[in-house]
Simulated scan of single mutants.
Amino acid sequence: MDDISRGCIVVTGASRGIGAAIAQELARADFQVACLSRSGSLPAGIDLELAERTRMFAIACDITDANSLTEAFALIAATTDRPIVGLVNNAGVHLQGKSATFPVADYEAVMGANATSVFAVSQTAYPYLARAGGALIVNMGSFFEKLGVKGNVAYCASKAAVGAITRCLAVEWARDRIRVINIAPGYIETDLNRAELNEGPLQDFLRKRIPTGGPGAVADVSGLVSMLYRLPGQFLTGETLYVDGGQGMAL
């Protein structure tokens, strides 16, 4: 099925922040969206008319638990009458601290939520995506994957792993017409971090450091995800697309 525009896309971490924006943008593009989150809630601030028109639905799921994933995808398949044509691995956590004293348990928690879960969710979704005859997985990485950032060894390592997972799955699953792309945002302003990004030293730093003049908006990410699902063709796969205002390449 070359045209995936009538399918269902699964979005993890879809109840708030960038995940909520992605889910709503995909719904506006007339995809059906299955929203996974721990709370099992529809995206915050969702247009209920839009949700009803596209038959968007929410399911509670712990992406770090194999049984929860299996049950969630079985429920998605039973709920939708459309093929599952996409997966957006958005859920994750960000813990930081000095590397000399950062608890190994916290390091493992970050790796589990940000990297291992990307593989586990993709693996669970695989048979459904393969049956669709044409599908796309979008992973949410970070431009931190190519930087050395003090106090962020776990986060940087986890996002570098997302890029590697993307490349490996793209090569291995191409025969099943499943493409895999990694989106690596820089600083993106959301309801969760707006105050932090627009006050004090960090605001001044970002204005000077980001060539485009400051943090991006959630629409910069959600719009790109929606565009990728609407692009024709099967040749773009395995790549990391940086959405960081040029910060990661600027001297």
Rank of each mutant, 00 (worst) to 15 (best):
128 Y>T: 01
214 G>C: 08
140 M>I: 14
226 S>Y: 00
136 L>E: 06
192 L>C: 00
211 P>K: 00
62 D>R: 05
204 D>P: 00
243 V>W: 02
24 Q>R: 14
19 G>E: 10
115 A>D: 09
10 V>S: 03
203 Q>I: 00
146 K>S: 14
32 Q>D: 01
149 V>A: 05
204 D>N: 12
101 T>G: 01
218 V>M: 14
124 T>H: 04
211 P>I: 06
179 R>V: 01
126 Y>H: 15
165 I>L: 13
162 V>W: 09
25 E>M: 13
149 V>L: 13
243 V>S: 01
124 T>K: 06
161 A>C: 11
88 V>P: 07
138 V>K: 03
121 V>E: 10
8 C>S: 11
23 A>H: 06
15 S>F: 10
103 P>F: 10
163 G>K: 00
72 A>G: 01
16 R>L: 10
230 R>K: 13
69 L>I: 05
242 Y>A: 07
228 L>K: 01
131 R>K: 15
106 D>T: 00
224 L>G: 06
183 I>H: 04
241 L>A: 03
251 L>I: 11
33 V>W: 04
111 M>A: 13
126 Y>W: 13
100 A>V: 13
173 W>N: 08
103 P>Q: 12
140 M>V: 11
137 I>T: 09
213 G>L: 09
22 I>E: 04
20 A>F: 12
74 A>H: 14
125 A>L: 04
61 C>H: 05
206 L>S: 04
196 E>V: 08
144 F>I: 02
203 Q>A: 15
68 S>P: 05
199 E>T: 15
199 E>K: 14
50 L>H: 00
38 R>P: 00
248 G>C: 00
206 L>M: 12
243 V>L: 13
248 G>Q: 02
236 L>S: 08
114 N>T: 05
130 A>S: 13
91 A>Y: 02
114 N>S: 09
35 C>K: 06
117 S>Y: 07
187 Y>L: 05
213 G>W: 03
219 A>C: 01
155 Y>E: 11
145 E>N: 12
246 G>A: 06
157 A>S: 15
228 L>G: 01
58 A>Y: 07
103 P>K: 11
132 A>Y: 01
32 Q>T: 14
1 M>H: 13
78 A>K: 07
183 I>A: 09
97 G>Q: 03
38 R>E: 08
238 G>E: 03
204 D>V: 07
246 G>S: 04
236 L>P: 00
5 S>W: 07
37 S>F: 08
44 A>V: 13
210 I>Q: 07
115 A>Q: 13
22 I>S: 05
163 G>E: 06
5 S>T: 15
95 L>V: 04
224 L>R: 02
31 F>K: 08
195 A>K: 14
8 C>V: 13
139 N>V: 05
82 R>L: 07
93 V>P: 01
206 L>N: 09
239 E>Q: 14
192 L>Q: 15
136 L>T: 13
114 N>P: 12
14 A>T: 14
123 Q>D: 13
232 P>Y: 00
186 G>P: 11
250 A>K: 06
2 D>T: 14
195 A>H: 12
91 A>F: 02
229 Y>S: 03
124 T>D: 00
182 N>D: 15
216 G>A: 02
151 G>R: 04
40 G>P: 05
45 G>T: 03
134 G>K: 12
146 K>G: 04
31 F>H: 10
9 I>K: 05
108 E>S: 12
9 I>Q: 03
29 A>K: 14
10 V>W: 11
195 A>I: 07
89 N>E: 12
136 L>W: 04
8 C>I: 09
237 T>I: 03
191 D>Y: 03
